[in-house]
């Protein structure tokens, strides 16, 4: 009896138990993460009646895109309101992001490059706001916004989001600037560039991943924020999506398929943004975290 393996010995690697355990764990984690989103998508394709069936329809017997067409049709009231909320969220989040970047970039650069009295205290002080739960500031900020005449305006949200978005943005960007060798700027200065030119033409391009990561962070934070928008806004024409989708709940009933369709639509911009720019996001987080 000839054993093939005797002629052509195959080196069998022993099963790596830890590797497989890791794979199984990651698979379970993936299922745990993805399943709610898949279920959200499936429910959004059901009619109101089908969504309440038990046992649940794993795939709707009568799938419909009606919930999406209702949301995206500007000729009906539901569509008009959803699209308005969507536009409001986009406007508030974009404006918050732009302002956060405009303020955080020079602030982080200053913390990274300059030495001035109270620098360390000030640097930690920007985090003070983030050390308290948001709800503590709710009523004081509401009264302040009322005093400023900003209640029921998007300005109240942008200002508020900046108060808790900026500190982390500054910290994130400072770590990034710390990793850009100061010699590059010095070389530019020797070649005749002003400090501003060195910042704009040397440092800024190198810090693009960090700026993009900060922008994504600010955008997502503003896009998902609920409690301040819920408190500051009562006018439907001003509401943002997280508050607006509450309209799918009423006293005794919930429009689950409509709610799921709206939630899915709400997640699309964030997912797209993250997928397109994720390499910058990961790079910025890792590079900013390690000292070279």
């Amino acid at each position: 009896m000839t054993i093939a393996t005797a002629d052509h010995p195959v080196s069998r690697r022993p099963i790596d138990g830890w590797r497989w355990a890791g794979r199984i764990f990651l698979t379970l984690l993936l299922i745990f993460t993805v399943m709610p989103m898949i279920w959200m998508l499936i429910t959004s394709l059901k009619t109101g009646f089908a969504a309440m069936q038990y046992p649940p329809q794993w795939w709707p017997t009568e799938p419909t895109l009606g919930n999406y067409t209702r949301l995206l049709d500007p000729t009906n009231s539901v569509g008009q309101e959803f699209l308005r909320y969507f536009w409001n969220s986009l406007w508030v989040s974009t404006l918050t992001t732009i302002l956060a970047i405009v303020v955080a970039v020079p602030a982080a650069y200053a913390f990274s490059r300059f030495r001035f009295p109270g620098r360390t205290v000030l640097f930690f002080a920007v985090l003070l706001r983030n050390m308290f739960p948001a709800v503590i500031f709710l009523v004081p900020l509401f009264i302040l916004m009322r005093w400023l005449g900003l209640v029921n305006t998007h300005g109240s949200l942008v200002l508020t989001y900046l108060t808790f978005g900026l500190p982390l943005a500054i910290w994130l960007l400072k770590g990034f600037y710390d990793n850009i060798p100061i010699q590059l700027e010095q070389a530019a200065r020797i070649d005749g560039a002003t400090r501003l030119q060195a910042f704009l033409f040397i440092v800024m391009p190198l810090s693009t991943p960090g700026i993009i990561a900060t922008a994504i962070y600010s955008f997502i934070g503003a896009w998902n924020e609920y409690i301040y928008a819920y408190t500051f806004l009562t006018r439907h024409d001003q509401m943002t999506l997280p508050v607006g989708i509450q309209r799918f709940f009423s006293e005794n009933a919930t429009d689950w398929p409509g709610l799921m369709a709206a939630t899915f639509m709400m997640s699309v911009p964030v997912v797209v943004l993250f997928l397109v720019l994720q390499k910058y996001f990961v790079r910025a987080l890792t590079e900013g975290a390690v000292k070279h």
Binding site: T47, G48, F49, A50, M52, T61, T64, N252, A253
Partner: peptide, 19 residues
């Protein structure tokens, strides 16, 4: 609540096919 009864009638009226 009476509204719940009305809602159930509403859902049933909007169901299609096998549903």
């Amino acid at each position: 609540h009476p509204a719940e009864y009305a809602k159930m009638l509403d859902l049933a009226s909007q169901a299609t096919g096998a549903d």
